[in-house]
Every structure is written in C-alpha cells, then in structure tokens.
C-alpha cells in the first residue's frame, strides 16, 4: 500500500484515500495545435521504468490535486509538491539525483 504525503492538508494518505491521475506536467494543446501536438498531449506517455512524476488526487481527504515523484520499480516516493507548477521543484530534483546518481532527468 502506497502512503503519500498530501502537500495541502499534511495527511500521510494511504493509497485507498487517493486517486492516481497519471503523468504530470503534460503541456496542454488546444484546437489550434497541430495533429501531432494534440496526439502527444492526449495519448502519448513517457511511462518511465524508474523515476516518474505523476498527479494524485486526495479524493477522500481535502479533495485537492497534487504532484508526486515516485519510482515505478521500487515504489519509493521521493516527495510531493503542489499542483500549481509546470515542473518539479529544483530541491526535489537534486534530492533525487543524490539518491539516484544514474538517473537521467527529463529523458
């Protein structure tokens, strides 16, 4: 069972309290974009084996969306951060790099 800290209400929430929301920081494209931009936004996913940034919803808690950095091989949660950002915080990135020197960010 994953246990993830909600950055809003500070609750250590169990997986059953949360809803997974998929890949984080997708760039939104609208009707004026090209077909492939729209396709990328809607369907194409990084689906990383290893460190992944994703969205979570504190459904049975404060009801807010937030972000988490997690490893899809070990289930380790590196940290969580609020939804109002288009990229992970620098501090979190450098913490992950320290823990996983072999990690190639942004691949």
């Amino acid at each position: 069972m994953l246990v993830i800290l909600c950055p809003y209400c500070g609750v250590e929430a169990e997986e059953t309290e949360l809803t997974a929301g998929g890949e984080a920081h997708l760039e939104r494209f609208g009707p004026s974009s090209s077909d492939s931009e729209f396709e990328n936004y809607l369907f194409m996913r990084k689906n990383e084996k290893g460190i992944t940034f994703e969205r979570w919803h504190h459904t049975y808690g404060c009801g807010k969306w937030f972000h988490a950095a997690r490893c899809s091989m070990t289930m380790e949660i590196f940290g969580t951060y609020p939804a109002q950002t288009s990229k992970p915080p620098k501090k979190l990135i450098s913490m992950i790099k320290k823990k996983r020197p072999e990690w190639g960010e942004g691949k």
Partner: peptide
C-alpha cells in the same frame, strides 16, 4: 488493475 504505473509484477493488496 491498479490506477498507477508499475513495473514490479506486484499489485496493491486492497
């Protein structure tokens, strides 16, 4: 299935 990406061949018990 679980709702989140996972490469471990293990799922959530619940």
């Amino acid at each position: 299935t679980d709702g989140f990406n996972n490469y471990t061949q293990r799922g959530s018990f619940h």
